[in-house]
Design a protein around this nucleic acid. Structure first.
Lengths: 192, 192
DNA sequence: TTAGTTTTGTATCGATCATTACAAAACAAC
DNA sequence: GTTGTTTTGTAATGATCGATACAAAACTAA
């Protein structure tokens, strides 16, 4: 019924995600996006809305894949502590292996915008809730099978792990001592 | 020998620091700074240089006060674990009590710029070195007086505490459950 | 007071910002 | 092939970006 789009919506969104991830919201110009996405400005606005909306869409896409990954790892049939070790260590590896050293898009966004944009704050709070939920389920499972003491509070343990998940993403940006970071994560696991 | 400045250099720098801290580097315009600092653009450039230089000066000022604070706390005559508990809990309190929820200026800067600005990366690496040094000294002191097992590696423990210092600054931006954060920090202390 | 120096205020620079008007081009349905 | 609809490319919008030119104003030293 009309002229079809020349580009793939999802793939082009991924390109925008990469730019926002690397340069942040304010640090990214529409010209940057137009160039990276290889579409013209009018196509961009028509398909994804304005800069804010595109950013939010990119962020949600990122979070979904992040959650999917965590859920995948969490449903593996291995000990709970092994699972949490895998989560932490994979983050260290991924952060250090990224040649662009982009860190975590959610962490970057929280530190840039959560205090000045309520919508972003809501997304961040929701993300925390979801990740905490995944972690709590893991910990309860560990308590059920005897890996973790039932005396401990799952909510607190989850918050503790979450803090380390966030922290290691920041630290890995300036410290590339892989062994040291893995050793620090090992303390997290062994203190559960 | 000439017309004196009408403003206080250090106090006006503090105003710039507050703006950069709240809005980030790219999110801050020179117009924002001129307004907050209550000086004219030419005075700003003449005294502090361009935007980049002013930002770096503000960041260094922030780091110096941060290090001074850590050193002050570290030289208190209390048990080492108590000191580390105080460091972690004070960060939680300060972050939650700030009505502007600015978080940590260093963390914000690392996540915004460390991957695109080598000068910032160097400052961040240097900061990590200094904080790690303070933490390592504390831990060695704890090992000397029997608070902490001498079997443990001070460097790894310091990296572990550092990760939690960074992490809690990010988490406190979206989770304002004070009790939960304090409880999580308590795990950090008790795992030393 | 006068000479010399620096700061201040105004006003503006070209460049870049996010966003869009408009018309040619490209498709689907008939 | 014609009609109707949407996308595309070009080009430009006003606003804001970081940074300065210039002259009046304000001070010190003599």
């Amino acid at each position: 019924m009309a002229r079809p789009k020349k580009f793939d919506e999802a793939a082009t969104l991924q390109k925008a995600l990469q730019v926002f991830w690397k340069k942040g919201y304010a640090g990214t110009s529409m010209a940057d996006l137009v160039k990276a996405m290889e579409i013209n400005a009018p196509s961009l606005y028509d398909t994804y809305g304005d800069k804010q909306k595109l950013f939010l869409t990119a962020l949600q896409t990122y979070l979904r894949s992040q959650h999917d990954w965590m859920n995948d790892v969490s449903t593996k049939d291995i000990p709970v502590k092994e699972t949490i070790r895998l989560l932490l260590n994979t983050l260290v590896e991924d952060t250090l292996n990224d040649p662009e050293k982009k860190g975590c898009f959610m962490v970057n966004t929280v530190t840039e915008l959560a205090n000045v944009d309520e919508k972003i704050l809501a997304v961040a709070a929701d993300n925390e809730k979801q990740v905490q939920s995944i972690l709590q389920n893991l910990i309860r499972k560990g308590q059920a099978n005897g890996e973790i003491s039932s005396d401990k509070n799952p909510e607190i343990l989850a918050a503790y792990v979450f803090t380390n998940l966030m922290g290691v993403r920041v630290v890995a940006a300036t410290n590339s001592d892989k062994k040291l970071l893995h050793a620090a994560m090992e303390i997290v696991v062994s203190s559960l």
